[in-house]
Amino acid sequence: MSAARDMLCDTASAVFTEAASVGIGPVEDAGFGLLLVPEADGGFGGDWGDVNAVLWIAGHSVPDLPVAALILSGLGDVDPALHAAATVSLMAGAMGQALTLSIDHVNTRQQFGRPLGKFQAVQQSLAVMACEVRAVEAAAAALAARLDATGGDALAAGFEIAAAKLRANRAVGVVTSVAHQVHGAIGFTEEYDLHRVTVPLMRWRGTHGNDAHWAQILGRQVAGFGGRGLWEAMTARDA
């Protein structure tokens, strides 16, 4: 990762920590609405790789704040598909947080005289969950790379937006259910942090295109490529 993106992530983490208690104000004041605006127009001149990194952190730490909408507002009236793209990054971050909370919990909580994480049944569940999280992280990063290769053109990146949002939607079920299962009752309380990421994940699954929406779009596009054409189209789109 570049030094500039490292700095951006450090800034985002600090600003989001403050915003977690006071709302979106500090995020606006820090200029995140200018992240995608070119430097020539007085913006930060960031790319979609930057957006993915920032929204990953937002999904992780402030999933209820409209950070994605703020970043996209800098571009004016954008294709709604770009909101779907941004949501994938938020989902990757929120899933990462759900996994972190789950690992911490099973390594701490003891039953039958040992931490839950020592039980193979729990280990196997968390491994399944981690695979889903890693898949969504990969989808978000690959989508960002495609958006950067196409200059942020939602139409040119339509295949990747559909594939990534659909894949992220399909991961929500496993990720939220395993996270809650390994947490037991504490994870179902208002006080504990898990719902702060799992409820947004459930919401995002239906926002900016649910499974049926993107599966139809992608399925019809692929049908147009033809059987062998799918592979040729997919490899021709490598950044």
């Binding site: 989808a139 594939a163 894949r167 993107w214 599966a215 139809q216 992608l218 399925g219 019809r220």
Partner: peptide, 14 residues
């Protein structure tokens, strides 16, 4: 069928 093709493609691409 389009739905299934879409879902399988999303998984394969990822």
């Amino acid at each position: 069928v389009a739905t299934l093709i879409g879902e399988l493609t999303a998984e394969m691409w990822t």
